[in-house]
Design a protein around this nucleic acid. Structure first.
Lengths: 217, 217
DNA sequence: GTTTACTTGTTAATTTTTTAACATTCGTTT
DNA sequence: AAACGAATGTTAAAAAATTAACAAGTAAAC
């Protein structure tokens, strides 16, 4: 079941997580006037393995590297941005306009990643008066289905409390959402073919804490 | 090099990321009065594999499950919290009191995870006047080394812009920080034995975007 | 008191991901 | 123009993580 996700020899999730770091480094190079870069150099800069870098590049880009020279930085940037979808817009809606939700709504940086928040929803009537970015509004939950289906939105961002996260998730799936960015600290159960990307500070802290436990006198 | 992290047959990083989800689910069970739970039930609830659940539990807890009944929920919670370090405090400092940094400073929830932000630092003299939580202050960068070493702080949170992230990272490492929570969207190079946990929205968006690309008509 | 059905815990197999090995190519230098 | 050195790209090996298989045990049902 899970394997179907990578059906056609898809890129691994781990690799996907690395891509933005490649792109970031490539842009640093470009800004300082460097025109070509080799896999070993990228690997050293990002603390990765040479071969891994080559394979990741091969997956994302069709440009061939030249022995002794490496890859053309500009072309790589173009291919990475294209692969990551930064050049065409993905529209998303957000549910839960609490503190975190409103922070995300205010964040200006999403457009650089090709993400566009077209609407937000909240249960609380007090919030549904507010605007953000001076344009869009926070809508009552009743409007969710209609808007998602009419605009064919495929990305949903969940910022509601744990208690209502699964219910919201179900509604999103029902109205055509295909990928969910989940900021609630709980597992969401979804049908096959729907992706959930979790953002959970507790998970990050678990890694930090475990490291300290092992590496402290 | 990387392998040394797991030297003494350590728990895998993937498993660590799962632990908070187990704990969360266990607490939901406890709240509704359930006293025991089986691995298959946990697996179903969290969309995991039965065996994986058993192995994770075995790693974190020493309590044995009873055939036909499963595990004692309360005991598991105790062991998970202990393993995750929720019952003893880890002190951390934060560098970069911009919008994100201040959001984290205001966040009340860290104490539930055993994390305590003892101080924040920023370059900007305008910010070093501000207090947060009515108690701690934002200090100028000059005070960083002294405070970290004196208080033996081992966790550093980086919320500075990309351009200064590596420099800040180096200073943190130099004054005894062992684990870094990095919110700058860039790779940090650290010596062996220092852990960097990255929090990068671009990485998450890469996963979402790739999924849509593959699963959309 | 047996039988049944479900669960544990472990060992083995599979799959995925990472790393090593190597033959090949091509600028650069001599 | 030949030799060198540094990269590529690929194939093979290793390591890590996930999943399957199975023997053993125990509460509950009969």
């Amino acid at each position: 079941m899970r394997a179907l996700d990578n059906a056609v020899r898809g890129i691994s999730k781990q690799a996907l997580l690395r891509l933005p770091y490649y792109l970031n480094y490539l842009k640093v190079l470009q800004k300082s006037g460097v025109e070509t870069v080799s896999a070993p150099k990228v690997a050293a800069a990002l603390s990765l393995n040479e071969v891994q870098v080559r394979k990741d590049i091969a997956f994302v880009s069709s440009c061939a590297g030249k022995p002794k020279l490496g890859f053309d930085v500009s072309l790589l940037i173009r291919d990475f941005e294209s692969f990551l979808g930064y050049d065409n817009v993905n529209e998303a809606i957000l549910v839960g306009a609490g503190l975190l939700g409103r922070s995300l709504l205010q964040y200006k940086g999403f457009s650089a990643y090709g993400l566009h928040l077209v609407a937000a929803f909240d249960q609380d009537p007090a919030l549904t008066q507010l605007r953000f970015n001076g344009e869009q509004k926070i809508f009552p939950m009743e409007k969710l289905e209609n808007l998602c289906q009419r605009m064919r939105i495929h990305i949903g961002i969940i910022c509601v409390p744990e208690a209502s996260a699964q219910a919201v998730c179900d509604r999103l799936v029902a109205c055509g959402i295909r990928a969910i960015w989940n900021f609630a600290p709980t597992h969401l159960t979804v049908p096959d073919g729907i992706l959930v990307q979790n953002e959970n500070i507790a998970s990050s802290l678990a890694v930090l804490s475990a490291h300290l436990k092992d590496h402290l006198a």
